[in-house]
Design a protein around this nucleic acid. Sequence first.
RNA 1: GUGGGUGUAGCUCAACUGGUUAGAGCACCAGAUUGUGGAUCUGGGGGUUGGGAGUUCAAGUCUCCUCACUCACCCCA
Length: 416
Amino acid sequence: MKYGIPRGTKDILPAEAKLWQLVEQACREIFALYDYSEIRTPIFEFTDLFTRSIGSGTDIVKKEMYTFADRKGRSLTLRPEATAAVVRAGIENNLISIESLAKLYYLGPMFRYERPQAGRQRQFHQAGVEVFGSADPRLDAEVIELSVRLFEKVGLKDLVVNLNSVGCPKCQPEFRGAIKKHFAQHISDMCQDCRDRLEQNPMRILDCKEAHCQKYLEKAPASLDYLCPECKNHFDQVVGWLGNLGIKYQVNDRLVRGLDYYTKTAFEVIARQLGAQNAVCGGGRYDNLVAELGGKATPAIGFAIGLERVISLITDHQLPITNEGNIKLFIATLGEAATKQGFALLSQARALGISADMDFLGKSLKAQLKNADRLKAAFVYVMGDEEVKKGSAGLKNMATGEQSEVEFSQLITRLK
RNA sequence: GUGGGUGUAGCUCAACUGGUUAGAGCACCAGAUUGUGGAUCUGGGGGUUGGGAGUUCAAGUCUCCUCACUCACCCCA
């Protein structure tokens, strides 16, 4: 093979594309149901937008971005996530303000340079929502409910909502200090990754998977115990509203989100069957990001769903894939005159909204019928040169096998 | 970036400790039915065994390199 596909990318072939359309449609329907409007931002942005918002210390920024210089030497980056771009677009177009609520959703490809594995690609797709303008905990509950309803709609089961609060700039320093203090005494006995994390991002130690480190994690301080009164109150209200909505969740004080901008509520929707990369949805509140990116201080919350992961859950479990017929009419012809006439009828049928096709490979009549069967055509119009003279031909119902004589002029109305 | 596993036909897989012309099922094409699909039968096309080098009388099989895929770590959707 001369040209192969770049690593970490995937062709979505026709059979699977159908499923993608179903999932995307489900997303759009649910988002609309909750009064979210679509926003489409560019695939690339100025690099600074991502380094500022995601955080220069995060892995995404340090080693996972597709960054390149354009012809004028400007540094651009293929978006590794959408939130920063949506915030940028919102500020730039005056969509975001404290006086009004902006509820936006997006759907599209993201890019991160990582080693591919199950549930992780270099180009992957996310659907997500962002709400700007309110710190009301009901919105935290609403977006979580929205994601749960969406998963229900596409038929996914056995998902678990993990919920935590990572605090705000007021309470985070104290918690961070407590973490450092706790692990400092054990760090010499912990894995190399944890040693690095102690300095760089101490909160990440909490979800270390190393068996040897587990015993030190058990007694580690939980962020929930260090929340300031405002954050604590917010978290309690989110929990309360989720209860009212009947949304099941698990408080997970080990849940740490990887992007710097999160405040207060952090949540993930987990599918155990997925393997190591098992989060199908991740999100949370980011009350300071709009201000950090140059807008007026505006609270916000959002989430992103990993569409590849959703798709793989659906295909793994053979969930509802409607497989209706492809076309309504197949025109089978024999001889030059019939082929000419058939091609004209084909065009007429399509013009009137009847999906139709015919043979373009010069195949035998038998092979044409076979092909029509494969295409799941409802009807086949069989015409040879005799029929052209007669002005009528046999219309065969492929389900029953019955064939009746139909004039050319009557064909379309018969199929309508 | 690190570690493990796997690369044979379009797909799923065979080929005993290296041994003759690398096989099968499915799919595809054609015929049986000079102008009618799904079933059956018969025949057919398909491969540089991922690529390169080496060992050997002989390599799909052993060694090394390389590439790709895959799973996991880091991290994330």
